[in-house]
């Protein structure tokens, strides 16, 4: 019973209080949370959130953690899903001071070890950037030397999460390269990124190639991850090195 008690304490539902709500795009917000007793997390992990309606109806969803483990406050970036049960509340109605139930961190598969020097290839579709941002933020905070390439696919420029931070990262961090592709927009005239869906030539241009044996993380909507992960294996990356997180439809 002791171990059960210990486990329950670790994965118990806790009360999270919103301390700040920051817009990241027209439909995504970062919630900064105060979670008493939070045990800390690893980059790439997520939390389960539970909302309870007045009539007792409960709804649970998982959200990736955006903040680095080294940052004291827990931050989640939530993309509004039209007709969703949880994300419209969290992105449109929730205000600082509001509370909800949260448990975690959970997941040990889609995580990065900051002590590793293995090269990193991060491929994100839309809000699939969130857990990869936790990795990039930790990478910078610990001064990791692991060569890191990020490829982000977004519909439009204003859909790009953490845009200023990514631009700063691109200018500042030697070990990190940032590549963007826009799939819906006609890009601005000075646009230096791509303007098409992720394809084989793009992934080969981003690199590092399979010979560098990078650890690969792919996150985004299920069709995006299916396509990107399939292409990566086709190019020759070891399927076991390709870690995927699909958000669903």
């Amino acid at each position: 019973m002791e171990r059960l008690a210990g486990t329950e304490a670790r994965l118990s539902w806790r009360v999270a209080t919103i301390t700040e709500s920051k817009p990241e795009s027209p439909h995504a917000k970062t919630l900064v949370l105060d979670v008493p007793g939070w045990p800390g997390q690893r980059a790439g992990q997520h939390v389960d959130i539970r909302l309870t309606a007045e009539d007792g109806y409960q709804s649970e969803r998982s959200y990736s953690i955006a903040s680095a483990p080294e940052t004291p406050a827990l931050e989640l970036t939530i993309d509004r899903v039209e007709d969703g049960e949880v994300s419209p509340y969290l992105t449109e109605e929730a205000r600082p001071g509001d509370q909800f139930e949260l448990r975690g961190p959970v997941g040990g598969y889609f995580v990065w070890e900051a002590t590793s020097d293995q090269p990193l290839l991060l491929v994100a579709g839309g809000s699939g950037l969130v857990p990869l941002m936790a990795i990039l933020r930790q990478h910078e905070l610990v001064g990791s030397g692991a060569g890191t390439r990020l490829l982000l696919s977004a519909r439009t420029l204003e859909d790009v999460l953490y845009r200023q931070e990514l631009e700063a990262l691109r200018d500042r961090a030697e070990a990190v390269t940032v590549h963007l592709t826009l799939t819906r927009d006609t890009p601005p005239p000075e646009w230096s990124g791509w303007a098409r869906r992720v394809d084989r030539a793009m992934l080969e241009a981003v690199g590092p190639g399979p010979d560098a044996r990078p650890r690969v993380y792919v996150c985004g909507p299920t069709p995006f991850v299916e396509e990107a992960a399939g292409l990566l294996v086709e190019i020759g990356y070891d399927p076991r090195s390709v870690h995927t997180e699909r958000f669903g439809g």
């Binding site: 486990t7 994965l11 997520h46 389960d48 998982s62 448990r103 975690g104 959970v106 997941g107 040990g108 598969y109 889609f110 299920t222 069709p223 995927t244 997180e245 699909r246 958000f247 669903g248 439809g249």
Partner: peptide, 13 residues
């Protein structure tokens, strides 16, 4: 649409 086992890490735990 399917996701990954990772998504129910909390349930599995």
């Amino acid at each position: 649409m399917h996701k990954d086992g990772n998504a129910i890490a909390g349930v599995l735990e």
